[in-house]
Computed example of a mutant assay.
Amino acid sequence: MRPDLRQKAIAICDRKIAQKGESVGLSFYAFFANRNDDPDLLMEAATWWIKTHQLDHFEKAAKIREMLHAGR
Rank of each mutant, 00 (worst) to 15 (best):
Arg2Leu: 10
Asp4Pro: 06
Arg6Tyr: 00
Arg6Val: 12
Arg6Pro: 01
Gln7Val: 03
Gln7Gly: 01
Gln7Tyr: 09
Gln7Ser: 14
Gln7Asn: 13
Lys8Gln: 12
Arg15Asn: 12
Arg15Asp: 14
Lys16Gln: 14
Ile17Phe: 04
Ile17Glu: 03
Ala18Asp: 15
Ala18Met: 11
Lys20Ile: 00
Glu22Gln: 15
Ser23Glu: 15
Ser23Cys: 12
Val24Asn: 10
Gly25Glu: 15
Leu26Ala: 06
Ser27Asn: 13
Phe28Asn: 08
Phe28Lys: 07
Tyr29Arg: 12
Tyr29Gly: 12
Phe32His: 07
Phe32Thr: 03
Phe32Met: 07
Ala33Tyr: 13
Ala33Thr: 15
Asn34Ser: 14
Arg35Phe: 12
Arg35Asp: 10
Asn36Gly: 02
Asn36Glu: 12
Asp37Gln: 08
Asp37Trp: 09
Asp37Arg: 13
Asp37Val: 11
Pro39Gly: 04
Leu41Asp: 10
Leu42Asn: 04
Glu44Gly: 01
Glu44Gln: 07
Ala45His: 05
Ala45Lys: 08
Ala45Gln: 05
Ala46Asn: 01
Ala46Trp: 05
Thr47Phe: 08
Trp48Phe: 13
Trp48Leu: 04
Trp49Pro: 04
Ile50Cys: 08
Ile50Leu: 08
His53Phe: 05
Gln54Asn: 04
Gln54Glu: 08
Gln54Pro: 00
Leu55Asn: 00
Asp56Thr: 07
Asp56Ala: 14
Phe58Gly: 00
Glu59Tyr: 02
Glu59Gly: 04
Glu59Asn: 11
Glu59Thr: 04
Lys60Val: 01
Ala61Pro: 14
Ala62Cys: 05
Lys63Pro: 00
Ile64Glu: 01
Ile64Trp: 00
Arg65Ser: 04
Glu66Gln: 14
Glu66Asn: 08
Met67Ala: 03
His69Lys: 08
His69Asp: 01
His69Pro: 00
Ala70Val: 01
Ala70Gln: 13
Ala70Trp: 09
Ala70Leu: 02
Ala70Gly: 07
Gly71Asn: 05
Gly71Ala: 06
